[in-house]
């Protein structure tokens, strides 16, 4: 287990905020949705730093996972909370790490069960290699390349820190 200094959480967060601000649609109907658990932490930081204090929702994608038949239900499912109407909104979907793309797919499915957003912008703190689905981040705080047996993990909520974990 090694903590690599080049993956600095605060720098990545700054990059991400800058990138999102640039892309932020000028229309007022925007909202942020964070994916449990790390995505919610990042989303909370974004909410504080972005202008206009956008409404914030949280998503637990446990009921939309595609590996239910293999690993079962996550033991600590939290309710998704979307305290605003999705219909016609520009959604900034936030996660900590973009890896295979399966979480994002599940999150998109769930968002569409709440309503029909005007657009969805994908903002991730870190994108790493290993995509299994045609998913790309619109905004990313950093891009890293890792070995197959490595994972990058976010700790939070404040301050955020990143570390690379090597699996046996």
């Amino acid at each position: 287990m090694t903590a690599s200094p080049e993956y600095c959480a605060s720098a990545a967060l700054e990059n991400l905020i800058r990138s999102v601000t640039d892309r932020l649609p000028c229309c007022p109907d925007s909202a942020i949705i964070g994916i449990h658990t790390g995505g919610v932490w990042v989303a909370e930081h974004l909410q504080q730093q972005l202008p206009g204090r956008l409404p914030l929702g949280t998503l637990d994608i446990s009921f939309y996972r595609d590996d239910f038949s293999h690993v079962g239900l996550h033991p600590e499912v939290r309710p998704s909370r979307i305290p605003f109407d999705i219909d016609g909104r520009h959604i900034i979907l936030v996660d900590d790490v973009l890896y295979t793309g399966r979480t994002v797919r599940a999150a998109l499915s769930e968002i569409f069960d709440y309503g029909r957003p005007a657009s969805v912008l994908l903002a991730v703190l870190i994108q790493r290699d290993g995509r299994q689905l045609p998913v790309t981040a619109d905004c990313a705080g950093d891009t890293v390349k890792l070995q197959d047996n490595e994972q990058i993990k976010l700790s939070g909520p404040s301050p955020l820190s990143l570390e690379v974990v090597r699996l046996p």
Binding site: F63, Y64, I86, S109, E110, D113, Y114
Partner: peptide, 9 residues
């Protein structure tokens, strides 16, 4: 309580 009261589980 949401608009589509269904999850694909």
């Amino acid at each position: 309580v949401r608009s589509i009261k269904k999850v694909p589980l």
